[in-house]
């Protein structure tokens, strides 16, 4: 333990710093915002350059763009029904924004904007406001029967209605916590194991051999995190679809 006291700073990686030099600092343009812009640019580039050839037999990039489109379209129509096509742009945007945030965060020197509860909760809030507005527009005040199921005895109304309201309001909370917690947990584990490598390597020859353990673990973890990145984006999108289904069909 030569250079200072090495400690594991697992949460320092989530700290926001301003990017783009003095201009970014003056408007509080953080690296998180920068990554969001990069993600948005990459998504647009994928669709634009992917679909540019318009080939009958798609190349690799075009196949990727088509799978992206088909996958989200299938998700919408399977979950919501044929009305789901109207929500396709929203779900597509949401899915790819989250997916690219998760995936870009796995690159070295980048930042995972989905690891901030502020970001994920904002996204979840957009989802819940949209579903509520959609439900109110389609069903009008009939929407409020959602909070009191049909066959329930009237006597239980003071108990059921608050529970249903809380359950409805907990949707954005659980939606955002799930994504945020998964991303934070993954990146904290990366940091912890990476710190083990450095600390062991600093402890002499024997430690260098031992450092292979956490290194191997981090390699495995990277594969696992790729899965989690995709899965959480998928879960976020599919739950959005399910909530939209509830809003459209109301039951």
């Amino acid at each position: 333990m030569a250079a200072g006291e090495p400690s594991i700073d697992a949460l320092g990686q989530f700290k926001l710093t301003s990017s783009l030099g003095p201009l970014g600092a003056s408007v509080n343009f953080s690296q998180s915002n920068l990554m969001m812009l990069i993600a948005a640019g990459l998504i647009l580039a994928l669709l634009y350059y992917g679909m540019k050839p318009k080939a009958m037999v798609p190349g690799r990039l075009q196949a990727l763009a088509e799978i992206a489109y088909d996958g989200v379209m299938g998700m919408c129509t399977d979950q919501i029904g044929h009305e789901g096509k109207r929500f396709f742009p929203f779900v597509f945007t949401l899915f790819f924004f989250v997916l690219f945030g998760n995936l870009l965060g796995l690159l070295p020197f980048s930042f995972t904007y989905t690891s901030h509860i502020a970001v994920t909760f904002s996204l979840a809030l957009v989802v819940i406001v949209l579903t509520t507005v959609v439900a109110l527009r389609i069903h009008g005040l009939h929407f409020f029967t959602y909070f009191f199921p049909d066959g329930a005895p009237k006597l239980l109304a003071p108990l059921i209605i608050p529970v249903e309201v809380i359950s409805y309001l907990s949707r954005p909370v659980s939606l955002s916590i799930r994504l945020f917690a998964n991303m934070v947990a993954g990146h904290v584990m990366f940091e912890v194991f990476a710190s083990f490598i450095v600390m062991l390597a600093a402890a002499g020859t024997f430690g260098v051999i031992g450092a292979a353990g956490p290194l191997a673990l981090n390699v495995v973890l990277m594969g696992f995190e790729l899965l989690v990145a995709f899965l959480q984006a998928y879960v976020f999108a599919i739950l959005t679809c399910i909530y939209l289904h509830d809003a459209v069909h109301l039951h």
Binding site: Q79, I166, S170, V173, S174, R178, Y234
Partner: peptide, 24 residues
């Protein structure tokens, strides 16, 4: 709404669901 429900995944979802309702 779920992918292949692995025990870990289900457990995590249940936990998040309980905590989220409690927070609200």
């Amino acid at each position: 709404g779920d992918t292949q429900p692995s025990a870990m995944g289900v457990g995590a979802r249940v936990g998040v669901e309980l905590v989220a309702s409690m927070i609200v």
